[in-house]
């Protein structure tokens, strides 16, 4: 009699924890979403346009050419007269892609929201203006053949 009761109790416990198995299965097998932006963004990019709040603006001379390397280093070619005079045309910086944002070390704390396809890249950053509003700056690039920049 006692054995039967214990067996029944065991069956009840086993039965009770059965749904937990499905909960654990359901939550443990959730796959992390894969974002291949870090791969797509690698390459050499030539700036084609710049807009501020949707209005066309003079190109950003600090990065007319931008090379993003797989080793988390990017090279920005600065064509401003100040850079040419100071012979600092090439600027190297670290980069990372976290939280859907492209972080270029020399631009931090501002970061960029990238949109990329095979041949074009656009990056958008947000900044406070003097009045406290948000200014949206977008740079558009086209992919060019990889160059060796020294």
């Amino acid at each position: 009699m006692k054995i039967t009761n214990e067996r029944n109790l065991f069956q009840v416990i086993l039965f009770a924890f059965f749904p937990l198995l499905f909960i654990f299965l359901g939550t443990s097998c959730q796959k992390d979403t894969v974002d291949d932006m870090s791969v797509k963004i690698v390459g050499t990019w030539h700036q084609t346009s710049k807009t501020i709040d949707g209005n066309s603006a003079t190109k950003d001379s600090t990065r007319l050419l931008m090379q993003i390397n797989a080793n988390q280093i990017c090279i920005l070619c600065d064509s401003s007269s100040a850079a040419i005079k100071a012979k600092s045309i090439i600027n190297r910086s670290g980069w990372s892609y976290t939280g859907g944002l492209l972080n270029i070390a020399i631009d931090l704390p501002a970061s960029w929201t990238p949109v990329v396809d095979s041949n074009s890249l656009s990056i958008r950053r947000l900044d406070f203006n003097q009045a406290g509003g948000i200014t949206k700056t977008t740079l558009t690039f086209e992919r060019v053949a990889n160059l060796v920049i020294n």
Binding site: T98, G99, S111, F128, G132
Partner: peptide
């Protein structure tokens, strides 16, 4: 005062507490 909180762990804060400095061109961000 406003906060712009980004996904990457950085945030920016705007206020005008020091705007009058530097002849009205003081830092705001």
């Amino acid at each position: 005062c406003e906060l712009l909180v980004d996904e990457n762990g950085a945030y920016r804060c705007y206020h005008q507490s020091f705007k009058s400095y530097n002849n009205g061109n003081g830092p705001t961000s």
